[in-house]
Design a protein around this nucleic acid. Sequence first.
DNA 1: TTGAAAGCGCTAACAT
DNA 2: ATGTTAGCGCTTTCAA
Lengths: 345, 345
Amino acid sequence: MLKKRITLKDIARETGVHVSTVSRALDPVERKNITEEVANRIQAAANTLGYRPNRIAAGLRTNRTMTVGVMIPDITNVIFPPILRGIECVLEPFGYASIIVNTDSDAEREERLIDVLRDRGVDGIIHAAVLRSDPAIAKAAQDGLPVVTLNRKVDGSPIPSVVNDEDSGICQMLRHLRSLGHTRIAHIAGPQDLSTGQLRLTAFRRAAEDMNINVADDLIAVAARFDEAEGARCLATLLTTGRPFTAVLCANDRLALGAIEAMRERNIACPEQISVTGFNDMPFLNLIQPKLTTIRIQQFGAGKAAANILLRLLNSDDKAMIPVATVLPVELIVRDSTARTANGA
Amino acid sequence: MLKKRITLKDIARETGVHVSTVSRALDPVERKNITEEVANRIQAAANTLGYRPNRIAAGLRTNRTMTVGVMIPDITNVIFPPILRGIECVLEPFGYASIIVNTDSDAEREERLIDVLRDRGVDGIIHAAVLRSDPAIAKAAQDGLPVVTLNRKVDGSPIPSVVNDEDSGICQMLRHLRSLGHTRIAHIAGPQDLSTGQLRLTAFRRAAEDMNINVADDLIAVAARFDEAEGARCLATLLTTGRPFTAVLCANDRLALGAIEAMRERNIACPEQISVTGFNDMPFLNLIQPKLTTIRIQQFGAGKAAANILLRLLNSDDKAMIPVATVLPVELIVRDSTARTANGA
DNA sequence: TTGAAAGCGCTAACAT
DNA sequence: ATGTTAGCGCTTTCAA
């Protein structure tokens, strides 16, 4: 049987004061309104009895659970653990714990999980699995629940977001490829229902135009998911259309990994025949051959940034001053999957 | 401002019955004691009003939060995400959510986090970061809090554990090395304050003896942590002692990866000059060169198993019938980091 | 400065 | 079958 917990009432009985006095003595803010000596006596009793505040009870009363929900697509995707550590790193010192849930990129499941989190009375949600059109989280935010989206954003929504500079990333990458002599460049785009997929594709088109690189429609393949299988499928599609290319810029690392795998199966050498690039710089990438040229996004940093925004939302420090969008800088990481074109082909 | 939530009281007012009747009608178990028609009316009202149960309030009353704590060393260690999915996979269908915390292998932090979890009224804890001697969690278990340890166990403790068959794993690996002609085999052992480190070292010594392999003390290096840096350090130590070896069996994959890296720096080829083996078969291992020969443990499966034990603990189904130790089978995975010895050296 | 009392939303024992 | 009542442990207004 679970040993009975020490409550304020126990301390009150022990010290001969009223439970509300105990509550005050143990509250760092209220403590100043209590006689020094009494407060000390209460504190001492609390310590010896091994008192631990019951946050459930406090939460019921104050309507704050000091718990936040964190939604991600899938924790086994290595990009997310560092993000979670970033979140924890800022939230924990303030006494917050987080409940992490995996949506598996399933909108129905996501909606259910939002309810799960709300039922548990989370004070706010950090959402790293949001869709461009996401009525479920929009409704939650509408109801007044503090929400921050991470890595992704909801189209035309007032929900604050922390994202990476997709535009600059794609632009830097395209410039890098062109500097190696590539002019026939394909793009494996991400899912278009995600802001990342859509923004990177748009950025690709715009940057290509700026650089006078002609991008035929059949040099663009759109992945249904950000995974290796889709990367492989898209590369196959690009090859079968027949239009030649010497480089393929992928919307993220996993697509790139899948593309390279598909090339390997067809005895197409990377980077000798086709250069391939990624996006994210996920952990372990530098250990996998060929080492992928990619855009490094801030993982830990993005988690911290989102948590900081949420913190401000929670303490509603003049809402109007909270940025609705925070864009984090990215960095080009050149490795071995990109090379100079043999000829101008 | 947070929109006011619909409560039982609201539904009671709406339907003209007492709040306790509403509570019963909405409880799948109690519902049968309510007139069909009334129950339906209540259910309908709950739906239209968008009622969501307040688990905080229920938890305060029932002393069950339907929340469990999960303690791991560090979520960025790729071995843990699959374990977490395994846990989620069995707990979620029963309505449990989990709060995941990272101990960073710091005993003090671990103790604090146990308090954090208890303050939040978790119904139980799955502990994958436990030390062989771990007074903090022992005390929690003593107090009646359901606890299961995962991957690791506490020495001589009644706390149920789910672990891998370390003994068989080490034995299979040693047999594999010997079958390749290796007789001078070193061991990079894990931290001895962890059951995994200790059991694997013990297993190594015993298995070597059984196979008449002589293991001098200076062929054993003990790592302070299960990480790459320690693997590298230990390999350097082994090399400097001067006693020759043709293979090194490492207590886990990260130590092995570190050892291989240290060899690379010294231009020692793996597996041509020295074979190296790991343990765990962590994700991505098959993408890293040289592909590591290792022992595959069940990651997802271990999470599921631990969650199942916890579930039984929570429902105290004849405690005496709950296994105090569950040992999961392991599997030898032969890849490219082990090779036949050139001569009998 | 301290005590009394109410109540957060829910469940459950008891009464009808 | 339903209503009444009490109370989980805490915070917070109001009174003294």
